[in-house]
Write a protein that binds this DNA or RNA. Structure first.
Lengths: 138, 138
DNA sequence: TTATAAATGCAATAATATTTTATTTGAATT
DNA sequence: AATTCAAATAAAATATTATTGCATTTATAA
């Protein structure tokens, strides 16, 4: 099942409408290898169906909530979720040279357990981003 | 040894000058519990010694290079380094309510080892940010 | 097919960040 | 204490990322 199909399924399941802007953003992110900003996405959308950037931000908000996409904070951009991965810790390996971002799973994630006892946080979520050089750029 | 003194020591060791703007930024960050943007810092600097925001960005760049401060990417802000911690993985626990950010050490950090073999990245650095509620806000 | 909640468009604005060029200054040296 | 100059800063313009409020349109359930 493709990324787009899987995403549509998730949208419907959660009572969100299938709209033009949402489909356009899904199609752009399906192909992207590097994190794209809302403005990047605006440029990649086919010229005959222009979308307001504000709309793109709102679409991205919904997609993030549904875990259809993830925000790569160190790059201020968004990438599609890799549905092949199981639910768990969504982490990214990011290439400093070409910008490529690969999602990967931390099967045995111990981040929460490393939080010192004296920091009594009720933790809800976390993100790990690793910067380096991908195979091609190394 | 205070954060400011330790920072001065590191600046001198690396042949950077001790200047007004650098001292002002150090003094602001020494007290801050939450990540501050360059513009936040500009507002916190004493009124009788205004600093250009561009200068603050450049000061922050140097400080980041020297690991005197860290950027909290999920908040687009900067916090002082906690020199009490040993060198290693600088991670943050961030409160979603009050914004507080506590640096903590992952003694046995396994992030790099969780990167799948097929992603042949040469990893250089990484950041982990955990969002939740601190003891006061929980 | 129609009613309506949800989604979008538009305009304005805020917040964060960078580039270029000219000027000033910290501190090493004399 | 005066001199010197690489290093640091200021200023102005511009780029990039993000949000808010309100009017209008649309996807879909009934």
């Amino acid at each position: 099942m493709t990324f787009v199909d899987q995403s549509i399924k998730i949208l419907k399941k959660n009572k969100y409408k299938i709209t033009g802007p949402r489909m356009a953003v899904l199609n752009v992110l399906e192909e992207a290898k590097i994190p794209l900003s809302a403005y990047d996405i605006e440029e990649h959308v086919p010229e005959h169906i222009p979308i307001n950037v504000v709309t793109i931000y709102r679409v991205l908000d919904v997609f993030e909530t549904l875990n259809i996409i993830h925000k790569v904070h160190t790059k201020e951009g968004y990438v599609r979720c890799d549905f092949e991965l199981q639910k768990g810790c969504h982490s990214f390996a990011i290439c400093n040279k070409c910008g490529r971002a690969d999602e990967f799973l931390q099967e045995k994630c111990d981040l929460k357990s490393t939080l010192p006892k004296k920091l009594a946080y009720k933790s809800l979520s976390h993100i790990s981003e690793l910067s380096g050089l991908c195979e091609q750029c190394a």
